[in-house]
Simulated assay, not measured.
Amino acid sequence: MHPETPTVLKKKAAVVVAHPDDETLWAGGTILFHPQWDWTVAGLCRASDPDRAPKFFKVLQALGAQGVLGDLEDGPEQTPLPEAEVEHQVLSLLPAQHYDLIITHHPQGEYTRHRRHEEVSRAVIALWAAGKLEATELWVFAYEDGQRAYYPEAVPQATIYHVLEKEIWQRKYALMTNTYGFREDSWEAATTPLAEAFWCFHHPQEALQWLHTLSASL
């Protein structure tokens, strides 16, 4: 477990998530903590959502990031999507270039459960391992909810566990409540974590082996 430390180096970083708000909920503090980095956010769902999509781009302005939304099917039934479809969406949204860092979902999600989070994670790991996404590092969100026993919490044992400064957390919370418009008594507002955590990988095969180990344990 290591706290995150600021760096003066400008990194090119991408955050690949399922939905508008995932970038803020799970990594908003990290983005705000590194304003000098060149941030790109790709959300794979809700491009045609007349409420969430415009708010996403307002949030990106506040985060100092650029980004794009796709429109993968995202109905409440969470019908499984073909791996090839999710991978194609990632590649179609993310500019083809080398990134110093890509951040995405955990293969088991951040809470119990949302299938799109899991599918996006597996797609990003597979694309990185296949050389179709180029990145020096991959970070995946490290949160768990005790099988719905409590709101999702950052995992202290993760590679990076960073308790957010009060001012940064307040800015993140304001994006969730004021910009995205979630009520203060909503699940999203109550979940907004005070700490952010990530499992970090420097080699694609290491991440792929980790994914296989997780899959075998299910």
Results as ranks from 00 to 15, higher is better:
D71I: 02
D71E: 14
D71W: 13
D74L: 01
P76I: 14
P76H: 13
E77R: 15
E77Y: 01
Q78E: 14
T79N: 11
T79G: 01
P80A: 09
P80F: 12
L81G: 05
L81R: 14
L81S: 05
P82Q: 12
E83K: 14
E83L: 11
A84K: 10
E85M: 10
E85F: 00
V86Y: 04
V86C: 03
V86R: 04
E87Q: 15
E87V: 04
Q89N: 01
Q89Y: 02
S92P: 00
S92I: 03
L93E: 04
L93W: 09
L94R: 00
L94C: 02
A96C: 10
H98I: 00
H98F: 00
H98D: 05
Y99V: 02
L101C: 09
I102C: 04
I102D: 03
I103Y: 04
T104H: 03
H105V: 01
H105G: 07
H106R: 13
P107S: 08
P107T: 08
Q108G: 09
G109H: 08
G109S: 12
E110L: 07
R113K: 11
R115M: 07
E118I: 13
E118C: 14
E119M: 14
E119F: 11
V120I: 07
V120D: 07
V120L: 04
V124W: 05
W128Y: 06
W128R: 05
A129W: 07
G131S: 01
G131V: 08
L133P: 03
E134Y: 02
T136D: 14
T136W: 10
W139R: 15
F141G: 02
E144I: 01
E144C: 06
D145W: 11
D145T: 12
D145R: 06
D145F: 11
D145Q: 10
Q147A: 13
Q147D: 14
R148W: 06
Y151R: 12
P152R: 13
P152D: 06
E153L: 15
E153C: 13
V155T: 11
V155K: 11
V155G: 00
Q157T: 15
A158K: 06
T159G: 09
Y161Q: 11
H162E: 10
H162M: 05
L164C: 07
L164P: 08
K166R: 09
I168C: 10
I168K: 02
Q170T: 09
R171A: 09
R171V: 02
K172H: 11
